[in-house]
Every structure is written in structure tokens, then in C-alpha cells.
């Protein structure tokens, strides 16, 4: 690989993929395209921004000419840019459709015209909607239930259209809830950690019994590297973890790690307008390529809490800025 472009590379998931790209494809030019919205942080790339490793381009994936110019000559494009926070999508959903659907359309069109030979589109397991029992494989129908997952499903439809109409060599990935360091403190795990570190209570939607699977960002990045090398073009892969926990259990784990009693540090708040009870996917297809999750949330949590403790001042400022 000579040139790799990754959109959303300064965000949480993207920056972990950039970490792995810089090691696995050492010598390749890695171009990070990121709009640098509230959830992105140049700090996520600090160690990687150096000659012949990575460069940051601040811009919008909806900007076609920018995308086309960057993607010319790319051997691989990883499209990870997205508005991703479900709660925000209930409050203001149009930016989700703009970034996730129109942005994906723009990236795909730029890739088509730039004749990019391999594209990985990062989607989500939420496109399947609620899976109350069993697990959805890649052939299951999409049934999104909130503005965020609907915008991601719309993006997938556009990708599918490009696959069929233009034989665009895209691989789509649908992953579980991803955890790790650098995640902006709005999702359950980092938000709860930050709340306790700031002397506040963890807020849980509804009764907290909703269930999610939790996948390490490092395992996810490993999967992307594998698919960059061996993934079947035009195909879709689920990327999952067996770690299934209710929000209540996750909150208990965090309280325990920080050393605070659960009962006194959790507050139940009004649920989302609609909140899927459970997501579940099977990831047998990527297992056949040789990938398996290696990390678990209980094992990783101490290091994650330590990272948020170490960066609490910087993150507090970013949280304040995000509210402005």
C-alpha cells in the first residue's frame, strides 16, 4: 500500500484504526480526513502526525472536490466518519443524514471517480434494529429504529447501489458497541466514568436493563486491518464480541473500578423515545478469515478508567465546548 485515506480518523474509532495502519502498513502515506467536530481531537493523532506516517486534512466528507482530490491515487479508503451518538440524533437528526448518508454518498462517488481499488465502509450493528433473541448474521434485513441507525442504513443502501451499479469494490462492516480510550464522554462507558470522576452520578436510561455487546476498539482495528488485506470485496462483515452486558452491569463494573458504591452513584433518567432492548450479531464470516476478539471489557476497564482520570481536565473542557 502506498496511500491510505481514512475519513473520521481523528475520532475515537478512526484513530485506533490509524494507530494500526501506521504499524501494519508502515511506509504508506496515511491521510486522515476529519471535520474535527466535537468528538474528534487532534490529541488522538499526536504521536502519528509525523513525516511519512500520517497527515491530517480538516474538511467535510460532503465536500466532493476535497474527497476526490484526496482519494486520487489511494490504494485503500476507510470511511469511518459519522455522526454516531444516538441521543443527539433524537434531538437533531438532520446532521446525521447529512454526514452519514450524504457524506457516504459523496465519499463513494469520489472513490468511484478516483478508481479506488478497495474501500471499507464502517457501518453499525444498529442497522439490524432490535434482536431480542439469537443473533443477526450479515444476511438479516436492516430494520433501523432511530434517526442515527436509519442514517447508517441509508448510507448502506447507497453503498449497495454503488456496488451493483458501478462494481465499486466496497466492504461493509457492522460492529457492536465499541469501547476504549479516546471515546468522547457522551456514550455510556466514558460518560459514566467521567461522571463519577467529577463527583456526579451515572445516568442510566429507563431501568438500565437494555443489553448491548461490547467490542474493544483494538479488536475492531485488528479486524479492519485483516479486511484491508483479506476481506472479500463487495461483501459485508459483522464484527462482534461475546461480551454481553446490560447497562446496569456496565455501571456496576465502572463503580467497582472507581471504588464507589453502585446504589449511591446511579440515577435513572427518562428513557429515549425508543430504545432497542438488545442488539446481537453473529460474526462467523470474519472468523473464517482468522479474526476473533481478544479483549474483554472487564479486563480493559482499569486501563480505560486510568486514561480518563489522566485526561480529565482536557476532556472536561471538550465536554463544555461540545455543549456550546
Amino acid at each position: 500500500m502506498h496511500k491510505i485515506v481514512i475519513t473520521g480518523g481523528a475520532g475515537f474509532i478512526g484513530s485506533h484504526v490509524v494507530d494500526r495502519l501506521s504499524v501494519e502498513f508502515a511506509g504508506a502515506e496515511v491521510v486522515v480526513l476529519d471535520k474535527m467536530t466535537y468528538a474528534a481531537d487532534i490529541m488522538n493523532l499526536m504521536d502519528l502526525l509525523r513525516p511519512s506516517t500520517a497527515e491530517l486534512v480538516v474538511g467535510d466528507v460532503c465536500d466532493y472536490s476535497l474527497c476526490f482530490n484526496l482519494m486520487r491515487g489511494a490504494d485503500l479508503v476507510i470511511h469511518a466518519a459519522a455522526e454516531s451518538h444516538v441521543d443527539r440524533s433524537f434531538l437533531s437528526s438532520i446532521p446525521f443524514t447529512q454526514s452519514n448518508a450524504l457524506g457516504t454518498h459523496t465519499v463513494m462517488e469520489a472513490c468511484r471517480n478516483a478508481a479506488v481499488p478497495r474501500i471499507i465502509h464502517v457501518s453499525t450493528d444498529e442497522v439490524y434494529g432490535e434482536v431480542l433473541s439469537g443473533a443477526a448474521d450479515e444476511r438479516a434485513e436492516m430494520n433501523p429504529t432511530n434517526p442515527y441507525s436509519a442514517s447508517k442504513a441509508a448510507a448502506e443502501m447507497i453503498v449497495n447501489g454503488y456496488r451493483h451499479s458501478f462494481k465499486l469494490p466496497v466492504i461493509t462492516v457492522r460492529a457492536n458497541n465499541i469501547f476504549g480510550i479516546r471515546q468522547f464522554p457522551e456514550k455510556l462507558i466514558p460518560r459514566s466514568i467521567m461522571a463519577l470522576l467529577q463527583g456526579e452520578k451515572i445516568q442510566l436510561h429507563g431501568d438500565g436493563t437494555n443489553v448491548r455487546h461490547f467490542l474493544s476498539a483494538l479488536d475492531f482495528a485488528d479486524a479492519i486491518i485483516l479486511l484491508a488485506r483479506k476481506g472479500e470485496l463487495f461483501d459485508t462483515y459483522n464484527i462482534g464480541s461475546p461480551d454481553e452486558f446490560s447497562n446496569l452491569v456496565v455501571a456496576q463494573m465502572i463503580c467497582s473500578e472507581i471504588g464507589l458504591p453502585f446504589d449511591e452513584n446511579v440515577q435513572f433518567v427518562r428513557d429515549r423515545p425508543f430504545n432497542d432492548r438488545r442488539y446481537a450479531i453473529s460474526w462467523d464470516k470474519i472468523t473464517c478469515l482468522g479474526w476473533a476478539p481478544k479483549r474483554s471489557l472487564p479486563d480493559e476497564l482499569p486501563a480505560i478508567v486510568a486514561w480518563y482520570r489522566q485526561n480529565i481536565n482536557h476532556l472536561s473542557r471538550r465536554m463544555k465546548w461540545a455543549q456550546e
Binding site: 474535527m36 481531537d41 487532534i42 490529541m43 499526536m46 504521536d47 502526525l49 509525523r50 513525516p51 497527515e55 491530517l56 486534512v57 480538516v58 474538511g59 467535510d60 465536500d63 476535497l66
Partner: peptide, 24 residues
């Protein structure tokens, strides 16, 4: 203050831009 943050914020206001680091 980290100089990279300043570049990030200036590019945010400018709307676009590329940060190239020649020595880390």
C-alpha cells in the same frame, strides 16, 4: 497549550486545511 490544538481550532474556523508535521 498544545500547539496542535491551536492549528486544529484555526482550521476549524477556516473550514478546511491540512496539518503537515515535518518533525515530531
Amino acid at each position: 497549550t498544545r500547539c496542535g490544538n491551536l492549528a486544529q481550532w484555526i482550521m476549524e474556523g477556516f473550514g478546511r486545511g491540512t496539518l503537515v508535521v515535518t518533525d515530531n
